[in-house]
């Protein structure tokens, strides 16, 4: 292992990590928004939109991100829709992640007893208040582990951004590998970089889940 090579290229990796992290984060945030939206549409059984959401979730969950990105980045421009690499990255990750987040939230909502909504209605809450104060907090608590699992999954999936013209971690590594031939060092740093990004996320997930369990307001139900 050539440590001086590694030391010399830390800045390159930092830049790559920043790209990966930034667009990963945008993707995750947009996914959360799309997920909540889909979930609400299905919860309130809004006609038409509800079927659209269901179809979208299936499409998103049953196709690889790589293929989605090829379609966005190399397919769409041919019919006049030109998107930058960055836009493709965020849109692609959101398309994928929105479906996964929607499912996570839905399983959270399913876990909330229907009678809770009735009890909320019976003390005169409006449907919106009912969602906000009664249903959603409980659904969220159940959904948190799945949501964190999705966040980790999505950040891992950002490695596929390397097919786009953007200097994310994978492309930084690839450029160094093909340029200098220090394959072992290059790959070592790549793996280390992903580990350093994902470890804090995983620790945060454990902490939040533990807190929710200790607060333990719910009846203990088997996971």
């Amino acid at each position: 292992m050539d440590w001086s090579f590694i030391g010399a290229h830390v800045p390159d990796y930092l830049e790559g990590a920043w790209v990966t992290l930034r667009f990963g984060l945008y993707g995750v945030l947009c996914s959360l928004a799309v997920g909540v939206l889909c979930c609400l549409v299905r919860y309130f059984r809004i006609p038409v939109l509800r079927q659209v959401a269901a179809g979208y979730v299936e499409l998103a969950r049953n196709t690889p991100l790589l293929v989605q990105l090829f379609f966005l980045y190399a397919g769409l421009p041919r019919v006049g829709i030109r998107l930058s690499a960055e836009a493709c990255a965020v849109i692609g990750l959101t398309f994928l992640g929105g479906g996964y987040m929607a499912e996570a939230f839905r399983s959270g909502l399913d876990a909330v007893d229907r009678s809770q909504a009735e009890a909320g209605a019976c003390i005169g809450l409006t449907p919106a208040q009912n969602i906000r104060y009664v249903i959603f907090p409980q659904a969220l608590a159940t959904a948190v582990p799945a949501v964190f699992a999705n966040v980790i999954f999505l950040i891992k999936e950002t490695s596929v951004f390397s097919v786009l013209a953007m200097m994310d971690l994978m492309n930084v590594a690839d450029t160094l590998r093909t340029g200098g031939g220090r394959t072992v060092e290059v790959l070592f740093m790549l793996a280390a970089a992903y580990l350093l990004i994902l470890l804090p996320v995983s620790v945060a997930a454990t902490l939040v889940e533990r807190r929710l369990r200790y607060a333990g307001f719910g009846d203990s139900r088997p996971v």
């Binding site: 007893d113 009678s115 809770q116 009735e118 009890a119 909320g120 209605a121 019976c122 003390i123 005169g124 104060y133 009664v134 907090p137 409980q138 608590a141 307001f217 719910g218 009846d219």
Partner: peptide
């Protein structure tokens, strides 16, 4: 419903509050 109260068999207190 603000004028009609209702209590159920299953209590249905809000467990997170």
């Amino acid at each position: 419903r603000q004028k009609i109260g209702m209590v159920f068999q299953s209590y249905d207190l809000f467990p997170h509050m």
